[in-house]
């Protein structure tokens, strides 16, 4: 099985968001960057499928600045065979621009499976995977939480409102993965050492024009100061009164 996994370097969720001087982006000073958590599930799934097949290759592909090399090394330390960095100055807000670059790289790769995270935890875009699939003309299932693969086809389960949707699809395919699909391994020391020697190809890339122009990044509106209504069950009548008369939600 030849499997590609598209991975993104993202700011850790613990990050305190400070807006940069341009008023449009994150001030990266002091921010810890990690492999997007959903992409960890994707890397893990690829490794398991390769292990089960007994042969194959897992290639991780990131589009971003040179710093993404570190993210690729994390995936290599988990066990991926090689990495490709589509090096750009910055990653735009526009998922389509990224999808186009990824599709161009994936097009002639001969992959049986192309995996993505269901979303990046920085932009919550939920789009690069299915867009890439459309550009490649491949079938795609998003938010896969359970996966069975057999010869030439697969069955996936994905969460929808109020239940699980069961989906059948032919291979090769693009899948975006959800939490719960597996439990990602931690890179062992041996893996970390080995990762340093694995091939990582850097390809300078120019992204197409973005259809989305960021005008401003602002902090979310402050929630107005809350208050402690009281202690214990005795405070409930007062709470109900506030919810009815002040907040008007009951």
């Amino acid at each position: 099985m030849k499997i590609a996994v598209c991975i993104k370097r993202v700011a850790d969720s613990e990050t305190r968001v400070k807006i940069a001087a341009d008023g449009k982006s994150l001030d990266e000073a002091g921010v810890k960057f990690i492999l997007n958590p959903y992409d960890e599930f994707a890397v893990e799934e690829a490794l398991r499928r390769k292990e089960q097949a007994g042969a194959g290759e897992v290639v991780v592909i990131a589009c971003g600045s040179g710093a993404s090399q570190e993210t690729i090394r994390t995936a290599l330390a988990m066990g991926a065979d090689r990495g490709v960095l589509l090096e750009t100055a910055a990653v735009p807000a526009d998922g389509l621009a990224v999808a186009r670059a990824l599709a161009a790289e994936l097009k002639d790769g001969g992959y049986d499976l192309v995996l993505f995270g269901k979303m990046a935890i920085d932009d919550y875009n939920h789009q690069v995977g299915p867009m890439t699939a459309e550009l490649l003309g491949l079938p795609c299932v998003t938010c896969v939480a359970h996966l069975d693969l057999a010869a030439g086809k697969g069955t996936a389960q994905r969460e929808v409102e109020g239940g699980m949707e069961e989906v059948e699809f032919p291979l090769p395919a693009v899948l975006t993965v959800d939490k719960g699909l597996n439990e990602p391994r931690y890179p062992a020391l041996k893996g970390i050492m080995a990762a340093k020697k694995k091939p990582l190809e850097v390809k300078p890339t120019t992204l197409g024009a973005s259809g989305l122009e960021v005008l401003a990044m602002t902090p979310p509106p402050e929630r107005k100061e809350g208050r402690i209504v009281g202690e214990g069950a005795a405070a409930i009548p007062e709470l109900i009164k506030l919810l009815r008369e002040e907040a008007k939600v009951l």
Binding site: S13, T15, A216, M217, T218
Partner: peptide, 10 residues
């Protein structure tokens, strides 16, 4: 974006 810690105007 950033888990609701910032808003983008686009």
């Amino acid at each position: 974006v950033y888990a609701g810690k910032a808003l983008l105007k686009v």
